[in-house]
Amino acid sequence: MSPLQLCLLLSSLLFCVGLVGALARSNTILVLLGVELMLNAANINFIAFWRYGPNPAAGTGVLFVLFAIAVAAAEAAVGLALVIAVYRHQKNIRLQEANRLKG
């Protein structure tokens, strides 16, 4: 099996671990962390295709990952601030109970 395939397998399995975690856990922090893992899996994909792609010298994959990391950091900050705000309102952080906006 070529290294590229291994990298892609790693990234897709990591993506699915994050997905299952985000779907199965009720704690909002863990759901957020699951989403972070999915983002990381995407970054691994970028790096893998940069490394084994046709034109690694351009460095597009690396730059994309850097931007993705910056955006993910912003996402984590806002997401965890939201968690704290939710906790202040309903005294717990179970995601399924944060449903006051439902139709």
């Binding site: 759901v31 995601l95 944060a98 439902k102 139709g103």
Partner: peptide
């Protein structure tokens, strides 16, 4: 909105699923 809001169950896990 009233029609579509029936799909808005408020269950974030459901959306992701």
């Amino acid at each position: 909105g009233r029609v579509y809001s029936r799909a808005q169950t408020g269950d974030a896990h459901g959306y992701l699923r």
